[in-house]
Structure formats: C-alpha cells, structure tokens
Computed example of a mutant assay.
Amino acid sequence: MKKDYEMAKLLPLEERALVVKYAKRGVWLVNIWFLIVVLTSLLFLVKSFALMFYYYAMGETQLIEFYELTYPDAIEKVKFHVVPYVLLYALQCYIDVYNVVMYSGVVPLAPMFILHACGQLELLKIKVKQLISEGGSDQEKNYNLKIIVKQLQDIYRFVEDIQTGFKLLYELTLKGTAVMLPILAYEILETFDRGGVDLEFITLFGATFILSYCPCYYGDLLIEKAESFRTAVYMSGWEGVWDKRARTTILVIMTRTFRTVAIRTMFRNLCLDALTDVITFTFL
C-alpha cells in the first residue's frame, strides 16, 4: 500500500484523486469503528455508575458490578466488600480496554486492505478505457497493456495475501455468528418476557452481526469492482486494436479476470450472499 501511495504522487490528478478517495474511505472506516467500539465499551461503565447513582438518590447505597458475573464461592461471598469490589472492577476495566484495542486494530484491518484493492481496480479500469480511446501507436498500446497486466497481477497477489492472513478468522467469524445470534436472540426475548431489558445481550447481538457484516460488505464490494473491471476490458473497444501482440495481451487480461477476485473462506466467497445464507440457516 505504501508503494502504491508513493506511485500515486506521479499520477494524473483524476487518478490520484481516486487513490485518495479510497484511502479516505479506509480512514473513515477505522475512525467510525473505533468510535463504535469505544461507545460500546463505555456502555458497561456508564450503566454501573448510573445504577449506583440511582440507588444512592433513592436513599440506598448499593455497589454495581462492571459486568455481572458469578464467581467461585470464596470470591462470591466477598465480591461486594470494598477492596475485592475495587480489584474486580479494575480487572474488568482492564479487560474492557484490552478488547477496545484488539477490536479497533483487527476488525477494520482487512476491509481497509480490501478498499485499497478496490481503488487499484478502479484505477486500472480508467487506464484500460483511456488506452483504447486515446489512440497512439501499436507499440505504445502494447507497452501500456503489459503495465496493466503487471499491476493486475500485483492486485491479485495483494488479495491473496489478505486471504491468507484472514481466511481462518473469517471462517470462524461466520461459524460463530451462526451459533451466537440464536443464543443471544433467545436471551433477549427471555429478558423481555420477564419485563426487563438487558443492554449487554442487545449490544452483543448487534456486535456479533456487525463483525460478520463488515467483512462481507467489503468482500462484496471487491467482487463488484472486479466484475466492473472485467466488463470495462470487454467493452473497451478491443475489436479496433489490430496489433496481434496487443490483442493477445487483452486476451490474457480477460482470461485472468475470469476468475473472480474475492476473499474466500474454506467454503464460500466472503460476500453479502454468504452472510444472508448464514442468517437464513440460523433463524429458519
């Protein structure tokens, strides 16, 4: 990515703006995800302090846990004593901060890479259209086509690296979603039946869905951009190119793009259709 950003400084204004556009989308994704994670983690802190303040205002002093847990008997008997309570609360706060750092760093990483790959495919799409429409000698066209082939290979290798790094994670994420969503939905409905609202389960339900939706959405976007590039190559006016070497190179590009660029788990491409199938299987 750093190499592509350095090369982007030498591109024409329109192409450079496209690279910047996708870079900004990656930054926006990281920022909005960080905000979501921080607000979610603060929910437990705010809830415990709000309840303690409420009981205090009602004339009753009561300690509320950061997160309600049942401990072994030795701890359970003393967990609301001041010193054990403070120690347990501090430990849970530490775990909360650890989760914020982990989810902020891991979850948006692959989508950010995927967005960069989408931007590079859009860049190649523009270059293919310009190559045929702007004319030039057969030698120039053949040279520029070879550059496009090399850049396309770089994109495919980049996507393969993303898949290698995140394949197992996303396989487990989709499988975990299929297990977690019905359990959490059951717990939420049971809480409603008892006349209460459990923010923890509602938050976990939303988080579980977003953890699967985010990579599936951007995986779907990558497939869409790859299909768009392949269509652009086919509709570029290659029939007007008479040089045999250039036609052969165009054929190589079209053959290469026949295999869809996508992030694959063990059984499926990572896309919204895969998420839909998971949810359908889970609830139906």
Results as ranks from 00 to 15, higher is better:
Leu10Lys: 15
Phe283Ala: 01
Val46Ile: 13
Ile202His: 09
Gln139Arg: 13
Val100Leu: 06
Val46Lys: 06
Ser41Arg: 12
Val83Gln: 12
Val197Glu: 06
Leu169Ser: 09
Tyr170Gln: 02
Glu122Leu: 05
Glu15Gln: 15
Ser228Gln: 10
Lys24Trp: 08
Asp193Phe: 07
Trp28Leu: 14
Tyr98Val: 07
Lys129Pro: 00
Tyr54Trp: 11
Leu168Val: 10
Phe66Tyr: 14
Val30Phe: 14
Pro12Asn: 15
Phe113Lys: 07
Gly119Met: 03
Met180Asn: 12
Glu14Leu: 12
Asp154Pro: 00
Lys79Ala: 01
Leu69Phe: 09
Asp220Met: 02
Tyr234Lys: 15
Leu174Asn: 01
Val107Thr: 07
Ile75Trp: 05
Thr276Glu: 08
Gly119Pro: 02
Arg230Phe: 10
Met7Asn: 13
Leu87Gln: 05
Val101Gln: 01
Gly165Glu: 07
Lys244Thr: 13
Leu123Gln: 00
Leu172Gly: 09
Leu145Asp: 00
Phe281Leu: 08
Lys125Ser: 14
Leu87Trp: 08
Ile64Val: 15
Glu171Met: 09
Leu211His: 05
Thr260Trp: 00
Leu45Lys: 05
Glu187Tyr: 13
Ala90Asn: 06
Leu109Tyr: 06
Phe205Met: 09
Thr191Phe: 08
Lys24Gln: 15
Tyr103Asp: 04
Asp4Pro: 02
Gln92Asp: 06
Tyr103Leu: 00
Ala185Met: 11
Phe283Cys: 02
Leu168Lys: 14
Leu39Gly: 09
Phe34Asn: 06
Ile188Arg: 09
Lys21Val: 06
Ile32Ser: 15
Glu140Val: 04
Arg25Pro: 02
Val278Glu: 01
Leu172Ser: 05
Met112Thr: 15
Asp138Ala: 08
Leu124Trp: 00
Gln120Cys: 03
Phe229His: 00
Glu160Ile: 09
Ala110Cys: 10
Gly165Arg: 10
Tyr186Arg: 15
Asp154Phe: 03
Leu131Tyr: 02
Ile188Cys: 06
Leu172Lys: 10
Gln130Asp: 06
Lys21Asp: 14
Ile263Leu: 08
Leu251Gln: 13
Gln92Asn: 04
Trp33Leu: 11
Asn31Leu: 14
Asp73Asn: 05
Met266Gly: 02
Lys167Met: 03
Val20Arg: 12
Ser48Gly: 07
Leu284Ser: 08
Leu115Asp: 03
Arg256His: 10
Leu251Ile: 13
Ile250Tyr: 03
Ala274Thr: 12
Gly136Pro: 00
Phe80Ile: 07
Tyr22Ala: 01
Arg194Thr: 11
Leu189Ala: 15
Leu123Met: 04
Val197Pro: 01
Ala50Arg: 12
Leu174Phe: 04
Val197Leu: 09
Gly26His: 02
Ala246Cys: 01
Pro84Lys: 03
